[in-house]
Amino acid sequence: MATGPVTFPLGPFTPYEGNPILVPQGDGWESGSVYNPAAAVVDDRVALLYRAHAQDIVSHVGLAWSSDGTTFEREPEPVLSPSEDYDRYGVEDPRVTKVDDTYYLTYSGWDRETALLCLATSPDLRTWTKHGPMFPDFDTFQPRGHGRPGPWSKAGGILAQPVDGRYLMYFGEGSIWAATSSDLLHWTPMTTDDQPPVLAPRPGTFSDFLVEVGPPPLVTDDGLVLLIHNAATKNPDGSVRYTAGQVLLDPARPTEVLAELTRPWLEPTTAEDLSGLVSNVTFVEALVWFRDRWLAYYGQSDSTLGVATFRPGERWSDLRR
């Protein structure tokens, strides 16, 4: 998978002035909300695997294509839909990584009681084989917990390159954890009784309420791993505000954070970011290098879909003269 320069921090990103780039349409499966996509570059086009639902909020994953990264044509039918007990009320919030000739898609299966991180694979982004929940007994909100007993897991970002012969994934909503695999299908969390999560909420920061994995991680130009994450604070009235951060990790010690941003690199600013099904949300799940720039695709208040761009060297080029 082609990539451009990866530094820490990555950015600055500028929200596209033409946002939103995808909005609900029609009276069917994508008539209510369109948001929270995965993305891949295929044959010099950007493919978006986006979450969409009608007013029933039963999510499907649709597929759209773009030759410029901002103007998309959608395929008429979803490519992934609820079909199993564990995802009967929604296939939500996809992330995608390509390894060799296979796309590995993680998504949240929702049965209106429990969210479980699930895996599906495809050779072409259209035909998917579901492999079921990845961590059916894991609660990623630990050590804080999510207010009730039982499992809960979301948000899996798979690193495309193996580390010492094994693949690495960061996963979790609430807190962020790490897992490894030898075949990309079966995953083992890197946890022990005394092993804390990789990243947990911290009082007084922009991740005061929770953290959640964003796009799949990237290897930086220094050989370290860049993990972009989503973070939330909770307001006194119970509402939330979602922004985005970045952390840097050593692949030899994938559970230890080396550095992190102390302020968000993306946060709600526009009308679509500030008001929607869940207001005050910029939620990043997709990051691709396309031609000469980075494109970060994100959900706007669980209602519409936007993109932010970063072209390395462009913003500060005058200062170097």
Results as ranks from 00 to 15, higher is better:
Val247Pro: 00
Val6Gln: 06
Ser303Asn: 05
Leu49Ser: 09
Asp250Arg: 09
Arg315Glu: 14
Trp316Cys: 01
Tyr104Arg: 11
Asp164Gln: 13
Glu92Leu: 10
Val79Thr: 02
Arg320Gly: 00
Leu116Ala: 07
Thr106Phe: 15
Leu168Asp: 04
Glu173Pro: 06
Asp292Ser: 12
Thr140Gln: 05
Gln55Ile: 09
Thr188Val: 15
Arg126Lys: 10
Pro24Asp: 09
Glu84Gly: 12
Leu168Ser: 04
Arg144Pro: 00
Ser175Thr: 10
Thr270Phe: 14
Lys234Met: 14
Ser33Ala: 09
Leu105Ser: 07
Pro151Gly: 08
Gln142Val: 09
Pro78Val: 00
Tyr107His: 12
Val41Ala: 07
Val99Tyr: 09
Asn235Ile: 00
Glu267Ala: 11
Leu224Arg: 15
Thr205Cys: 04
Glu256Gln: 14
Trp265Lys: 11
Gly165Asp: 10
Pro268Tyr: 05
Trp289Ala: 05
Pro136Cys: 03
Val281Trp: 06
Ser182Gln: 15
Arg95Tyr: 14
Leu48Arg: 06
Leu224Asn: 15
Met134His: 12
Pro251Thr: 06
Leu226Trp: 03
Val6Ile: 13
Tyr242Gly: 05
Phe283Ile: 12
Val6Lys: 07
Asp183Trp: 13
Asp85Ser: 13
Leu227Arg: 09
Ser153His: 08
Thr205Asn: 06
Asn230Ser: 14
Arg112Val: 00
Asp222Met: 12
Thr70Val: 13
Pro236Leu: 05
Trp152Ala: 12
Arg112Tyr: 01
Ala232Lys: 14
Gly18Leu: 05
Phe72Ser: 02
Pro201Thr: 11
Tyr298Asp: 03
Ala115Asp: 12
Arg241Gln: 07
Glu256Asn: 10
Gly299Thr: 13
Val91Cys: 15
Val23Gln: 04
Pro189Trp: 10
Thr309Asn: 06
Val58Gly: 03
Arg202Ala: 12
Gly172Tyr: 14
Ser33Asp: 02
Pro203Glu: 13
Arg88Tyr: 09
His131Ala: 04
Tyr167Ile: 03
Glu84Gln: 15
Ala286Arg: 06
Leu49Phe: 04
Tyr107Glu: 01
Val163Met: 13
Val46Phe: 08
Gln25Pro: 00
Pro37Phe: 08
Pro5Ala: 02
Ala232Trp: 03
Pro216Gly: 01
Asp87Ala: 05
Ala52Met: 09
Ile21Met: 03
Gly69Thr: 00
Ala64Cys: 02
Pro236Cys: 06
Leu249Asp: 02
Glu256Gly: 07
Val257Ile: 04
Ala271Arg: 15
Gly90Phe: 05
Leu49Gln: 07
Leu258Trp: 12
Leu218Tyr: 13
Leu117Gln: 10
Ser207Met: 12
Ala47Tyr: 12
Asp237Cys: 03
Leu49Val: 04
Pro82Gln: 05
Ala200Leu: 10
Gly147Glu: 11
Trp29Ser: 03
Leu185Trp: 08
Leu295Asp: 03
Gln142Tyr: 10
Leu105Val: 06
Pro20Met: 05
Trp187Cys: 02
Asp68Leu: 08
Pro82Lys: 08
Thr233Leu: 00
Ser33Ile: 08
Trp294Asp: 06
Gly109Trp: 08
Leu266Cys: 14
Arg51Cys: 10
